[in-house]
């Protein structure tokens, strides 16, 4: 909207409107932020203070005992490492599948292009569901393995279509110029299209990373071996214990940490990497999401 920047030009009613609006947005923003602050405060408070219900906004009796407890817990580190393996391995695998495929699908000279596109888009509308997918993974021997998690969730139609739409929007003369310069399809993709599609690829990468980092359901279902479990599954075990039983915390009442503070600390540890990459990719996804959303 064409914004008039100078507030002095506004009528009194408009000024009031602008300020009230700003206040409401601020309120919404704060209410979005509050739960995170609450959890962070819990994680840094004395266990006793938490169990006796003193922590509401800021930490009470600041201590890092909960973090110490987490740091010396080997199960935490194993699951943390596993999450990194799944996230990095999974994202790279996804990109290795998705990017070349989206490029190929975007080329008009590809034979059967329409049919391949339908084949991929169809899976967005219909899928076999949880049980057949699980049985299939079992039949492929991918239960309880790193590979199963990494390969089994490598592609999804939405990301492919998002990227394909972006590639389609690149003017054809870029490909043609590169071809005249002697580039083959691999080189055209690598040296021209990938650099040009940075926003879209960043968006897809972000989606992959986030879904890998956050994914817990299938990891919970497919992995039995404790040593392969990712952070979210480990965290879930902690949290469900927490919700199931109030007695755990009372037994720890005297300690510097409580069950609440420890699980809060793990949550914080799990959120931090997301927070770290978030600003870098954030600027891309407005554009990227629109690209994917509009067509088909």
């Amino acid at each position: 909207m064409s914004q008039i920047m100078n507030m002095n030009l506004y009528s009194r009613g408009d000024k009031a409107f602008v300020y009230i609006n700003m206040f409401l947005v601020a309120l919404f923003t704060i209410s979005t932020l509050y739960p995170f602050i609450y959890v962070a405060s819990l994680s840094m408070s004395m266990g006793e203070a938490v169990t006796s219900g003193q922590v509401v906004l800021t930490p009470v009796q600041i201590t890092f005992a909960a973090y110490e407890k987490v740091i010396f817990d080997s199960a935490f580190w194993i699951s943390y490492r596993n999450t990194f393996i799944y996230t990095i391995g999974g994202t790279l695998t996804s990109l290795a599948f998705i990017v070349p495929c989206a490029y190929a699908l975007s080329r008009p000279q590809l034979l059967g292009r329409k049919y391949w596109n339908i084949m991929i888009a169809f899976t967005m509308w219909f899928n076999a569901g949880m049980i057949p997918f699980f049985l299939n993974m079992r039949d492929l021997g991918l239960l309880d393995s790193y590979l199963g998690i990494i390969i089994g969730f490598a592609c999804n139609a939405f990301n492919i279509i998002l990227l394909r739409n972006f590639f389609e929007a690149v003017p054809p003369s870029f490909e043609e110029a590169a071809r005249m310069d002697g580039a083959n399809d691999f080189q055209v993709l690598w040296k021209v299209f990938i650099p040009l599609a940075k926003p879209a690829i960043a968006t897809v990468t972000l989606f992959c990373i986030v879904s890998r980092w956050n994914g817990f359901f299938w990891a919970m279902v497919l992995l039995r071996d404790e040593s392969k479990v990712p952070l979210q599954v480990y965290l879930r075990q902690m949290i469900t214990q927490l919700s199931d039983d109030d007695t755990f915390s009372s037994s720890l009442l005297e300690a510097a940490y409580s069950f609440e503070t420890v699980s809060a600390a793990i949550m914080v540890c799990s959120i931090i990497p997301v927070l770290l990459i978030y600003p870098f990719v954030q600027k891309y996804f407005n554009k990227g999401i629109m690209l994917g959303g509009v067509k088909e």
Binding site: P35, F36, Y38, V39, L42, V50, T51, S52, G53, V55, V210, W213, N214, G215, F216, Q232, L235, R236, I239, L242, S243, D246, S249, E260, S263, A264, M267, S270, I271, V274, Y278
Partner: peptide, 19 residues
């Protein structure tokens, strides 16, 4: 961008009966 587990964790913590 935050996982269901953590969101649920926050909910469980925030709605816990005594704390």
């Amino acid at each position: 961008f935050i996982s269901a587990v953590i969101i649920a964790g926050i909910v469980i913590t925030a709605f816990a009966p005594s704390t």
